[in-house]
């Protein structure tokens, strides 16, 4: 029953956002950033996740890979921004302003550390929200129990340094506006199977988790 409710909810949400995007379907925008990190890596990630969402929910999605610079006005048409990479992230002060504006006005940013992004990402987030911290979400947080249940929080998809996976959030007026996964790397699990060589179960776990993030971002 809970799942059915979520599916119906997700359908409504998607239709509402589809108008915002003027393209009739939900899309994820990849965030381009400076600093040297490979923002562009894994370009099959979003299309695969969106295909999975399409197959398992009633959401209408467009699985094209799209990416924008923060300075592009297009980002305001996308309720869900995704960023990942292995290296350094650097926002200029203009970009900091714009991203803050985007997030404060209802936008959602999901950042996934693909190894090596953590330190710079945290610094840049502090620039955007000097008075807010990335707080680790408890396992009973709603995101982990959306359509799919993750009783232990973020799943461990990539080994990285072998540390426990962690999910952090920044809240704006009680709404989760930024969600950040560390030592997990779910987005690698969304990539084509031959890219990382994960087994079927691991990929499925990552895709299910990605679906939960999308639904949570759109419904809260």
């Amino acid at each position: 029953m809970k799942k059915l409710t979520l599916i119906i909810l997700s359908t409504i949400i998607t239709y509402s956002f589809s108008f915002a995007q003027n393209e009739g379907a939900f899309r994820i925008a990849r965030l381009q950033y400076e600093g040297g990190g490979d923002w562009y890596n894994g370009q099959t990630e979003e299309p695969n996740l969106l295909d999975f969402i399409k197959a398992n929910t009633n959401m209408k999605v467009n699985d094209d890979f799209v990416s924008f610079n923060i300075n592009s006005d297009a980002i305001f048409s996308y309720p869900f921004l995704f960023m990942t990479g292995h290296g350094n992230v650097a926002f200029t002060s203009d970009e900091v302003e714009r991203l803050r504006k985007y997030l404060e006005n209802g936008g959602f940013l999901y950042a996934d550390d693909d190894y090596g992004m953590d330190a710079s990402f945290r610094i840049e987030m502090k620039k955007i929200f000097p008075n807010k911290d990335l707080v680790e979400l408890p396992f009973n947080y709603g995101l982990y129990h959306d359509l799919y249940d993750f009783p232990n929080g973020v799943p461990k998809i990539e080994k990285h340094n072998g540390k426990p996976p962690q999910g952090f959030g920044i809240f704006i007026k009680g709404r989760l506006a930024v969600y950040y996964t560390y030592e997990s790397n779910p987005s690698d699990g969304w990539d084509d199977p031959d890219v990382h060589g994960f087994d079927k179960d691991k990929r499925l776990e990552a895709l299910k988790f990605g679906t939960d993030i999308v639904i949570w971002a759109l419904s809260n």
């Binding site: 232990n152 998809i157 996976p165």
Partner: peptide, 22 residues
């Protein structure tokens, strides 16, 4: 980067972080 090793992580039980105080 392309040759970076991808090793699937193993899930391990751990304690939940503290409750949120929004």
């Amino acid at each position: 980067e392309n040759k970076r090793e991808s090793i699937a992580g193993k899930d391990e039980a751990r304690k939940s972080p503290a409750e949120l105080n929004l």
